[in-house]
Amino acid sequence: MKRPRRRDPLPGFGLSLGITLLWLGGLVLVPLLALLLRPLELGPLGFWHSVTEPRVLASLRLSFLGALAASAVNLPLGLLVAWVLVRYRFPGRRLLDGMVDLPFALPTAVAGLALTALYAPNGWLGAPLAALGVKVAYTPLGVALAMGFVGLPFVVRTVEPVLRDLPLEAEEAAATLGATRWQAWWRVVLPALAPALLAGFAMASARAIGEYGSVIFIAGNTPMWSEIAPLLIVVRLEQFDYAGAAAVGLAMLALSFLMLLGLSLMNRLWRRA
């Protein structure tokens, strides 16, 4: 590929870039600029106080740790599903494949209602779990569960294509050299999949951190305990605290960005190693 010049045989660079910038600017950048500038009203000190309130910190901690924990659980589960889908042929494979996208397509409010109905202490799964002494709904566990629900397809769909393109030769070579199947898997397959896994983990986490609709019904929303950061934005809005709401939004955005940046750096290092 080369730099677009007047001589570029392909037309439409200016037009498509123009449309793209207009589309991106009008729908994403200008609105986000408003989010960026609104907390300035508070001044730097005010902003800092606004986002370091114990309740804000607790909610940010829950949103981020919950999302990371949920994605960490999604990692082996997503890998298992991707592996089974790519490597094995079995009846109902196509159905399983379609099921993976369900959290993408299912409206979040519907997912939230359904999960709550299911895991509430009198629900199908909640009742037996409650008998075992495990409370899911209205606890941070429920929050993580809902986050896991929305994040799973990201892991599967990122790992799947890489796994499909993974040449079998390396595994064969490992087997020829006397490695057991487990060794070959652990030493050859997993390292090859690691970047994709990490990317899937990052995307699932990013999605889960901001998730609102499906989490809100099951969370219980107890301040300092099971209250997620997006809810706190809503709460602040209800108190007519626009700058404070925007401040929490900005803090979330900045932290997500840092997290994604960190993960992509890790990925780069991994690839180089």
């Binding site: 709550t116 509430a120 929303n221």
Partner: peptide, 21 residues
């Protein structure tokens, strides 16, 4: 002693009545 702190009165009633909290 509050296990669920809903955002609105309706949510609280639902938690109590429908979810057995």
């Amino acid at each position: 002693k509050v296990p669920v702190l809903d955002t609105g009165a309706r949510g609280a009633t639902t938690s109590f009545v429908q979810r057995g909290q």
